[in-house]
Amino acid sequence: MATGIEAMVTLRRMTVEDLTAAHGLSSEQKWPHRIEDWEMLLSMGFGYVAERDGPDHQKPDHQKEVIGTAMAWLYGTDAATLGMVIVSPQAQGMGVGRRLMDAVLGDLDGRTVLLNATDEGAPLYRKLGFMPVGPVFQHQGAAFAVPMAELIPDERVRPLGSKDMATLRDLAQRATGMNRDALLDALVPGAQGVVLTRRNEPVGFALFRRFGRGYVVGPTIAPDTGGARALISHWLGSNAGMFCRLDVPEESELSTWLDALGLPCVGRVMRMVRGPMPKADPTVTTFSLTTQALG
């Protein structure tokens, strides 16, 4: 049973009114999320905040202080991702992270849940039944000279068209083993996109949109590394000198290539799963994530 200061901490569902405080927590952790990024995340999912009485709690009109967050996003009926788990440094060691995780996981009962864990968060996630899958590398920087992609015969990169949404939904479903329709429906209107075709058939795509300190290239979905490089090269080459970020799984084999382009690896997280791993189609792969939280 919680006693003392732990009992003073309460949990409730996150609302739009909490986003300024949530943004303050992520900024305190040196995370790059803008308030607009928080707004997008909440519009697509749900979350909990942990709060406690602030220093002026004895005043009649006092407001509680938000000291922690956790969020989740649903994919179809059987999967979800979990992220934005933050606890203020002043509230560390109070069991707040565990309580937030328990609250979110309680709403995800029966679903496979994936997350990307920092080194600090991984021990808690292991206790909650998450198992490591593999590392994801965060690359960012400004590429000033991107060689033109070497396309294979009958391959091209073209702009995303209004009739491509069904193709994007199908490719995302196959690459992840999860229904990502709602995510794409939310992302595409605010993003630019290109499609990779081979013999005039769409086989991959990549989105480019505002995020954090600059722009993010992701998700990038392609049949192989060559196709992924062609898609990513399009965005980096057409936006030379602009700050861009990509989060790439180890198996993408893109990390060394991105280093050479001027986007060094600045961080690493561990992808973890609780429940059976979604069954993806091995002929199509996610080469860069939408975000670490959304997968």
Rank of each mutant, 00 (worst) to 15 (best):
V133E: 11
V133I: 14
M270W: 04
S233Q: 14
V16N: 10
D107I: 08
A2T: 12
A91P: 00
Y215F: 15
K64A: 13
R268F: 03
V9G: 00
E201I: 15
L258D: 01
L171A: 03
L105I: 05
A182S: 10
Y75E: 05
G218W: 05
K163D: 15
V248H: 03
V266L: 14
L114Q: 08
A280E: 05
F208Q: 07
M84S: 04
A240L: 13
Q138Y: 09
Y125C: 04
P153A: 14
V96M: 06
G24I: 12
F211C: 02
R274N: 12
L207D: 01
L183G: 02
G93D: 08
Q92I: 11
E6P: 02
R52G: 02
F130V: 10
T112N: 09
D109C: 13
Y75I: 05
G24W: 10
K127V: 08
L82K: 04
D37W: 05
G161I: 11
V113D: 00
G262V: 08
T285V: 14
Y125L: 08
P159I: 12
L25R: 03
L100R: 06
M131D: 11
P276I: 12
Q58I: 13
V87S: 00
L11G: 01
G295K: 11
G110H: 13
L82I: 07
I67L: 13
